[in-house]
Amino acid sequence: MSHTAAYAVPRSPAGGAVAARATGLSKVYGQGETRVAALDSVSVEFRRAEFTAIMGPSGSGKSTLMHCMAGLDSISSGSARIGDVELGSLGDRQLTRLRRDRVGFVFQAFNLLPTLSALENITLPLDIAGRQADPEWLQRIVTTLGLSGRLAHRPSQLSGGQQQRVAVARALTAKPEIVFADEPTGNLDSRSGAELLGFLRESVQALRQTIVMVTHDPVAASYADRVVFLADGRIVDEIHAPTADAVLDRMKAFDAKGRTN
């Protein structure tokens, strides 16, 4: 399988509209001698109502790709779009607004404000935007995530798994075009992790959300519809309908190649 060549030109969408798209996206840190290309002309599409996992060894650029696509980090060259919005042309305030209105986030940790209740945390992006939550939608998310009895609790009164579910609920509540999740199960035990991934899967299927998840866990990746592999800032492979074993095999192959290189 060839690497960059096959992915340099985005393939025509297999199904549904594109929620976000990177075209020739590069991210360079430093200058001259210390110049490091974290992303090297990456082109990728995230289709609506699809659950994509981004995998790769540390330093492969998977987090950078997510940050650039989510409007958290600037782009050196190329293009990153959410829907029809070109991120490269936006200033800080517009990026902030974009994140607020069209992007959801789930981080590995520090997702919630300890001073706010679970419900207040969930509606925080809407509060910031000065919008009202759609009660039916909110109800549906809360029920789907199994948080009904926990809404008045403070984060410190919730388990790690529950806290991450609140974070997912918050990411979904504003009906964003795309949700980015950065190692959402990284701090969870395997059962809570599996539960959370089940919910993410569910929200793609039942709520038709678009989710992009960065992970290094093959089991987590196996919940996705598609896995995109990154190495050295380039997309090197892709699997559809992955299983944990298939992902693991593919990663072993990269590792072996990395060692022989």
Binding site: A70, T96, R99, R100, P114, I128
Partner: peptide, 16 residues
Amino acid sequence: TREIGMLRAIGLDRRE
């Protein structure tokens, strides 16, 4: 710091 970072990520702008 991390809280503020999170708030910025989910859409609180600098002014706010």
